[in-house]
Design a protein around this nucleic acid. Structure first.
Lengths: 334, 334
DNA sequence: GTGAAAGCGCTAACAC
DNA sequence: GTGTTAGCGCTTTCAC
């Protein structure tokens, strides 16, 4: 629109010099500090003056220079969020949920007046990451190497992942309660009268292990065991593993899969084998919905918010002990 | 100068004052401009001095203050990325792909030395958004209301979505070539000898319309028509629609669905009806992989990169005309 | 209620 | 090669 403010008898300095407080001050014939106060809605400025200034600022397209404000105030209300998923891992880049996590964090940070600078772990932007109030690391929780690297910055640091439970002095970890999720799966399978259950997943991932452990513990209380089946995190791999498993073991009547994709594979294998197998997946994803698979649901958005809140507490000098986020079982056909 | 820090033996100045160039300068007994130059690897600084300075900076944990740098240089190497998905829309927040889009944009921006400030369309962070070099808007491309709102900031603006093709003076739009995707689906269905094809989707969305139009045009060249079937973008809705469609029309032998989830629903309906229906989905998502559904694949990461490149050109004062991103058909069982 | 002066930490421009 | 001076745009004293 009226982007080019055809100067009001003032020299247009430079091709595109931005409008500053001083410009507005000159227009309104007040000092720049008054403009500053007015724009921040200080009660010390007379309403009439304030309105005039606000109008002039709007008219002239004034936008505050945050660099100047932050420099003067010597703070930076900015937090870095490092997305450190590498592909071919537990969470492919195409996984929906990290985005929701991000959304939750961004929202909570915004509410607190913080901006989120998002980066991949590209080192090129080192300065942008290190000149922040704190850091959120999103990725496979306990990738020790990356965590160590970032914790050396000496900034408040919160990591998304599976708490190692050791209570060790490492970074603050926020995560979903995978053990609880596993226990909920077990309870469901038991309620359906199942007594020979297998866990499907890649146990090299801490989150998968926690899911398995939670399930095994709950089953154990009823005197049942849990059979580990190692599988890549794809539907095809899971299908092949379950096909083999069902052929080998005629008693299997329940499968808890560490992801919905694996659960979908398991369901196909069970259907082809003509076996009645109860199946629980993980993540309550569109895949689970489409296949009608019972699944453990995580509160990703809440997770993002908790991540942000925890970091903000850390920045404020507190010592937060964030709770694990509860999971919820969503029952469907399997 | 007012030197109140006489005690250089005292490492703690105040509760947490950050290390500045001046501190390093004092330690190394040089001027701060020399430190500045050394840290930026200027060739004007003698290697010996430079190394000494670098060591001292590392030792003292010096981190540049970007606010000061940006203020001095009067630029801001920062771009805002606004995630404007509202739920219950074409792309639910749980949609996987925008994250990849984001990743591509963040990576390309980082390479160019720009940081990405990610926000939801929460107005609380207005200043953080408006004090940037430019804006990337991620959401339903042509949500006129949001686009207008942001374009009033007068900043370089690039929107992800379906180009309206009008060549109108609106914002620069970057998007995937949905018409091409539709045409690829048509070519595939024709190659499988199909002659009565339906399109499944919600035509209120510009992207869906473009997919349908591309498909219809390609079919039209072979003298075939395309039947529109309106459906919500869920597997269940699609399943119901296709069930009805197949019952009504005994000739249908092909379905092009605007999303993989709908394609999965269609596949189930076809299987239950015992009909041989060729099916093509859209997005090449994990769901398509799991269901073995032929699908049109978009280059989301490349899309993010193109988004960033386009914005950077705009910032540089050029008038970019970004190409549509080509799609690719991934053939599976359907 | 309003203003004048000072300075946050950095770097471009010019000395030397 | 290195240092001195100045100033980016803002907000906090402290006057009035």
């Amino acid at each position: 629109m009226a982007e080019q403010t055809n100067d009001k008898s003032e020299p247009v300095a430079g091709p595109h010099r931005r409008v500053t407080l001083e410009d507005i001050a000159r227009i309104c014939e007040v000092s720049k500090i008054t403009v500053s106060r007015a724009l921040r809605k200080s009660p010390k400025v007379r309403p009439a003056v304030r309105e005039k200034i606000e109008a002039a600022a709007r008219e002239a397209g004034y936008r505050i220079n945050l660099a100047a404000r932050d420099l003067r105030l010597s703070h930076r209300r900015r937090v870095a969020i490092v997305m450190d998923w590498t592909p071919n891992d537990a969470r492919p880049m195409s996984d929906p949920y990290p985005l929701v996590l991000l959304g939750g964090a961004v929202e909570a940070l915004a509410t607190a007046g913080y901006a989120a600078v998002v980066t991949t772990s590209d080192p090129a932007l080192g300065a942008e990451v290190s000149d922040t109030s704190g850091l959120i690391l999103l990725g496979q929780g306990a990738d020790q190497h990356t965590v160590k690297e970032y914790s050396e910055l000496g900034l408040p640091l919160v990591v998304w992942g599976e708490a190692d439970g050791s209570g060790s002095p490492g970074p603050v970890v926020v995560g979903s309660d995978n053990r609880l999720g596993g226990a909920q799966a077990a309870t469901y399978l038991l309620s359906r009268g199942r007594d020979r259950c297998a866990f499907l997943g890649d146990l090299r991932h801490a989150e998968m292990r926690a899911r398995r452990d939670g399930c095994a513990a709950a089953l154990g209380e009823q005197g049942q065991g849990l059979i580990d089946v190692d599988s890549d995190l794809t539907a095809a791999a899971a299908e092949a593993e379950v096909e083999r498993l069902l052929a080998e073991d005629g008693g299997i009547d329940a499968i808890f899969a560490g992801s919905d994709l694996m659960a979908a594979g398991a369901k196909r294998a069970a259907a082809r084998a003509g076996r009645d197998v109860a199946i629980v997946g993980y993540d309550d994803s569109p895949t689970a919905v489409a296949f009608g698979i019972t699944s453990v649901s995580q509160d990703w958005f809440g997770g993002g918010r908790l991540l942000a809140q925890t970091l903000l507490e850390l920045i404020a000098g507190q010592s937060p002990h964030p709770p694990s986020l509860p999971t919820r079982l969503v029952t469907r056909d399997t």
